[in-house]
Structure formats: structure tokens, C-alpha cells
Design a protein around this nucleic acid. Structure first.
Lengths: 214, 214, 214, 214
DNA sequence: AATGAATGAGGTTTCATTCAT
DNA sequence: CATGAATGAAACCTCATTCAT
């Protein structure tokens, strides 16, 4: 009847504020999931406002995670859309820049993986999956143009495997209290998450492509 | 002399009962972490009794997870201690038998990864790490005798990478609500967690060993 | 000159729409008080607009109740203004027509009774009382002309007593979950709200008039 | 297995404490329903403890109301069990002593009537009805021995009608902001709730018994 | 050792009301 | 006048943990 009070931009601004606040709080205190009230307050909003934009706290966390994933995919898609060659090194650079070095990415991904079964609403879960799948396929297809990955869906598969390795290794080695690292083991051999990840991804790609990459 | 011994056996019996109960409940309702009271009741004990054996609920879940991991390592160590050759196929068989096909293993591992940051007591975390590391090193060393893994610590590394892939892929594909699977993607290419895992592990091992395995 | 008039008509139209919507929603879901937003939306208005017409939600509910009461009194006054006799049967007919058979009347009256202590603004309460009292006195006076009720205020008193009985009995017997009725009691004797009400009112009138009515 | 920690007496003590606290708070601030936390705190207990004894707040309020009703019925049953005559005056005395003069009785009854549709759990509602019905029948039967009430169920009916009148009149006249009393009306005739109630009950009983009582 | 009543922090959600537009 | 996004108080309930017995 009257003018739409909430323009799309305003809406997206609010959401961005909330996600920013959630991630900031999460980084401040990685040992605890931020409370809705804190998130709202940090975003300069009131608690109830959160529920105008998200059905529940878990959906908000999922949205924060989605933003991380989108940023990575967008960068990957952009890079692999460039004319000219793309090397494994280029991919690794993007992985480190948009995943490993984004402090909140992997802890949040881990949390979301645990939450997926619990609080996230089916709708949010489904639409998240849709949007991620979309990008996954686009990126996979583009990747297939730069690397000989055997089959049409090879790009999608190497992406999933790579991400699985990135996430799984982080859960073993990269988190504050690594599950599988005592002094003994780490003293013995482990050069830390970052370099082990690099080696592991290299091995995975070599093995997937059936030859030395590049 | 007899008393502390009997006590200790009784103690371990109690603990086993509790872990059994926790896993049974977890499998009944995978969408929610069982409550302490339920676990205790299902183990034939009272709520308060749990806290005689575990400092907190998270420690209990970690112990349940540890039992899963131990069972895998024990089988792997036993198999790789056998004289004669061991093939990649043998390893895969153990992976499926003690990890993939143990329904509670990967969801619990995912939950524990998410909890590691939060509730688990430092002591429990440290001793878990110690015990797992111990087995990891033993198994890694034995594995090195069967496969040419480049370096002394090669066995440990391939084990960690493999487990990372198993866990990471499960979080993407294997859980009830797969994070990265929509109809589109899965229709296109994904033959399901089990076979994708097998392919991915094969690639990883090939890539790590620098040649076709076997 | 024309403007305020038109305004006022528009105003009363709005109010009627709101009360209609409130009662309609109330009847749809008698177990819960309708929310302001629902009422507004059902009246074709926006939430905030309600507060241009009512100080608070309770005042709106009171107004809806008042409309019910007015309808009854108007009918009673009209009937008792007619030349000729009026019998107890006539009164009962009006009671059933305008109270018992108006589905929302008694539940709303019950709710308003509970709310009277809480949210209703003193102003709304006072003006409600004024308007009702006005009609009560007129109707009481007219009633006194048809029945020998002892004293000048006898009409008012029999009206109040009757309404008290109607309302109180409804709360005991007539609501969905009758407070004082189990199978045992109701099986034993209760023919239901309507006929018990008729019997009770008859008794009350007989007792008040000191003789068999009519 | 171990001793029953909570004896029946302890349980009933807790419940009594909670009901006492709820009624005390209700009387302090009749304009608002006490909060669960306040009730608990006033009973010397913690919030969560309330939920060991009541499924929800409404069930607690219903229990408080039930205690009022029981006290009245118990007194009535005791009195009417006495050998010798019982007069209408005796009944009135009990009505005033256990209902009208118990400050929280009628407001709470009004609130519960409004709540009956909303929050009260079906189980609580049903068992309340059962227990009240039980007493209602016993009391009704005993009453029938003292008064000629026409039929076997006459006692039950006169009790219900009387209570309906007591409650309904209170909602019109007795509450702080009487619905149907403005200065005009009350100045004109109303001697207040108590005496109007007495007159109305007398009329009702006379009318029900078909003659002047006693 | 075992119990389970009691605790109370923690978190979610609703919804009447306000106010800038 | 009308709007509806924003507010934030209000309330509920759960459940891990403690502790007196």
C-alpha cells in the first residue's frame, strides 16, 4: 500500500551486519558460539530484529558460513574464467587466501557440520545446498577446462575431494586443540597444518589426474 | 589388593556401559545429542553417577569416539603386524569395516570435532591425543613396512590424510543432510559417499606414493 | 464541515472492521487471543494503524465485547419499549438470541473479565462502564414496568444477577473444557449449558420476584 | 535403588510452598500474573524446580485455584456431615468465609477461567475436573439431606448455580474495576458485592426450592 | 559409590508497541 | 493518515551439573 519500507539493499545491509557481528564475536571467543543477543547488539540491532531475518540462530550461522564459501567460489570462478592458463599453484593460492587464511572459515565450517543435523531449519539447509551446488557445478566445469580431470564431472569431484581434505585435516591438525597431535607426534614430523595441507592436496591432485600435476 | 582391582574392573564396566548407552541413543536419534540423564538411565545408572566417571558430558562423548578410533587402529595394527603382504585393498577393507560401516563413527567424530573447541576438558583432550598418537605412530610405522611411503613418517601422514578425507567427505556427502548435495549435483555425478570415498582414497594414495598403487 | 464528518464516518468504519476482524479470528481459533497484526491484516489495515484507533490491544477487545453487550441491550430495550406485555419467555428469547447463541460473546466476556485487571486502560474501562451503565439503567427501568420487581432498582438488579448467572454458568459448563464437569457429573445430571441455564434463570427470577413468574 | 529421596511429604511441602508463593504474589500485584521465577524465588526455590512439580505455569495457577476450591468444599462437606440441621445461613457463612473473604479466590478463579482455553495442559485440566467433580457430588448429596431440593441431583445443581452467581457477580461488581458499575449506577442502588451477592443467592435458593427458604 | 532433587545459566522466541518515513 | 521495520520486555523451558543424603 505504502512504499516498501525495507528496500532490498537495506535488508541485505542488515543481514551483512549480523553476519559480520557473528563472525567477529566468534573470532573473539572461538570457544563458544556467540549468543543471539550479543550478535544483535554487536550489529547495532536488537535481539528481536535477528528473527526478522533468520528463523533461528543456526540459520544465521549457516548464512555466515555460506558467505565464506561464496567468497571462495566467486574467486575461483573469476580466476578460472580468465583467459589463459591456470595452474595448481593458482588454485592453492585461492585456497589459502579464501579458506585457510580466513580465520573463521574452518572453525565455522566445522561447527556448521555438527549443527547440520540439529538446529538448522530444513528450508535454510535446502536453499544453502542449492546455492552452493550451483557454484560448485559452475566452478567444477570451469576447472575442467584448465586441468585434464578425466571426465565431465571431474572438476566437481576434485573440488569436493579437495575441500574434504582441507576441512578434515583442519579438524585433525589445524584447530586450537588438535585432535590427533601430541607433542610426540608433532615433534616427530608434522610441519603444521598449512604445509601438510599443501602436500596432501598436491598428492590428491596428482593421484586424481594420474600424473604429476603441471 | 583384590579390592582396587575389583574396583577397577567395575569402573571399566560402568564406563563401557555408559559409552554403549550413549552410542545406542545417538543412533536412535541421530539428530540430537543424547542427554546425560538418558545415557545414565540407559546404562542402568543414575544421572549423578555419570559424573563419577566423566568430568563432563563432552568428555563422555570424546571417550565414545575414542573407542571407535581405537577399534580401527587395533584392527589396522593387528593386520599390518601379520607377516606377509598387505595391500591397499586390505586397508580399504578395514576402513569400511571399522569406520564407514560403523554407523555412529563419523557423526560422532563430526560432533566431537565441533565440541573440541567448547566443552571438552583440557585433560581429557590431552590424554585422548596421547593415546591416539601412540596408536597412530605404531600403525604408521607398521604401514611403512608394507608400502613405499617415502619417509619414515610417511605412514603417519598417509593415515592422517586418509582419515581427513574420510571425515571431510562424510561431512559433505555422507550425513543425512549432505551439505553440498542438491538433486542437481547428485543426479549429475555422485555415486554416493562409499564409492566416491573409495575413488578419492585411491587417488590420494596413488598421489602420495607417486605411482599407481600395487 | 464536511471533512470531519466524513472523517468520523471513516473512523467508525475502520473501528468496525477491526472489531469484526478480531471476533472472526477469535472464533476461528478460540484457544488463543488473536494477535494485533492478524487483526489488522484481517481488517485490511496495517499493524500500526490499530494504534490510531485503540490505545492498546485490550481496549480493542473490550470494544468488541462492548458491541456484543450493546446488541443485547438494544434488543432488550427495544422489546421492552413495545407497548403490551412482555413475558419471561420473551426475555429468555433475547438472552439466547443475543448472548448464548452469539458464539464469541461469552468467551470474550470471560477473557475481558480476566483482562480487566491487567491491560485495559482506565479511560477505556471508565467509558465502557459509563455506556453500559446507561443502557443498564434504561433497560432496568423498562423491565420494571413489565415485572413486579419490588423496588425501583429491581430491574437493574435482576439484569445483573441474570447476566452473572449466564456468565458464571458458562464458565463452569459451557466452555470447551468445562471446569466442573467430569463424565461422572455430567452423566449423572447435566443436560448441558443451555437447558441448565434456562432452569437456573427461571429459579432466579422466581426467587427474586417472590413467586412463580407469570 | 537407593532410598526415595523425595518423600511424599517433602513433595507436598514443596508444592504447598509454591502455591503459597504464587497466591502471595498475586495478591501483592493483582494486576499482573506472577512470573515463574518470582514464584520460585518467593518459595525459596529455583526456577527450574517449579518444572519438577508442574508442567507449566498455568498448571500451577490451576493447582492454586484448586486448593481454594477444595478448602471450600471440605468445609462444606464437613459442616453438612454434622448431625443436626444446617440452614441457608450456615451455607452463606461458609461461602463468605471460604470464598468471598479469601482475597485471591475469585480473581484467581476468573483468571483460570480465561486460561482454561489456553495454557493449561489437558492432563492437569482433566484431573482437576475429576477431583472437583468428586467433591461436588459428595457435597451435593449431603446438601440434599438438609434441604428439599426436588431431585437427587438437586444438591449438585444448586451448588453449581450458586457458584456461578458468586463468580459472575464478582466479575461484574466485585473486582477492582467493576465492569458494570459507574458512579451513576452504584450511587443509585448498589450496596456492594457482598450484600448484593447475599440477596442474589437468597433469591436463587428461594427460586430453586420453590418456596421461602427456612 | 550411588542417587536424584535441586539448581540456574543459557538460549529461544513471541508479540505488543513505537516511530521514522 | 498509514505503514511496517525495529524494538525489547516478557516469558518459558531445558538440561548439564552439583551436592546433601
Amino acid at each position: 500500500m505504502a512504499r516498501p519500507h525495507a528496500s532490498r539493499e537495506a535488508r541485505e545491509l542488515r543481514i551483512a551486519q549480523l553476519l559480520d557481528a557473528a563472525i567477529a564475536l566468534w573470532l573473539e571467543q572461538p570457544e563458544k558460539v556467540p549468543r543471539v543477543e550479543e550478535v544483535a547488539r554487536n550489529a547495532g540491532l536488537a535481539k528481536g530484529t535477528v528473527y526478522l531475518y533468520f528463523r533461528c540462530k543456526e540459520d544465521l550461522l549457516l548464512a555466515a558460513h555460506e558467505r565464506h564459501v561464496h567468497a571462495f567460489f566467486d574467486a575461483l570462478i573469476e580466476r578460472s574464467s580468465c583467459p589463459g592458463t591456470m595452474t595448481f599453484e593458482d588454485v592453492m593460492r585461492l585456497v589459502f587466501l579464501h579458506i585457510v587464511e580466513v580465520a573463521a572459515f574452518l572453525p565455522l565450517a566445522t561447527l556448521v557440520a555438527g549443527l547440520m543435523h540439529k538446529g538448522i531449519s530444513p528450508e535454510a539447509s535446502a536453499s544453502f545446498n542449492d546455492r552452493i551446488s550451483e557454484r560448485l557445478m559452475v566452478a567444477g566445469e570451469l576447472l575442467g577446462r584448465h586441468f585434464s580431470l578425466g571426465s565431465p564431472e571431474g572438476g566437481v569431484r576434485i573440488l569436493m575431494r579437495s575441500y574434504a581434505l582441507i576441512l578434515g585435516l583442519w579438524q585433525l591438525l589445524g584447530s586450537g586443540k588438535p585432535i590427533c597431535t601430541s607433542e610426540k607426534v608433532s615433534a616427530m614430523m608434522l610441519p603444521g597444518y598449512a604445509s601438510e595441507l599443501e602436500a596432501a592436496l598436491t598428492a590428491l591432485w596428482n593421484g586424481t589426474m594420474g600424473k604429476e600435476i603441471q
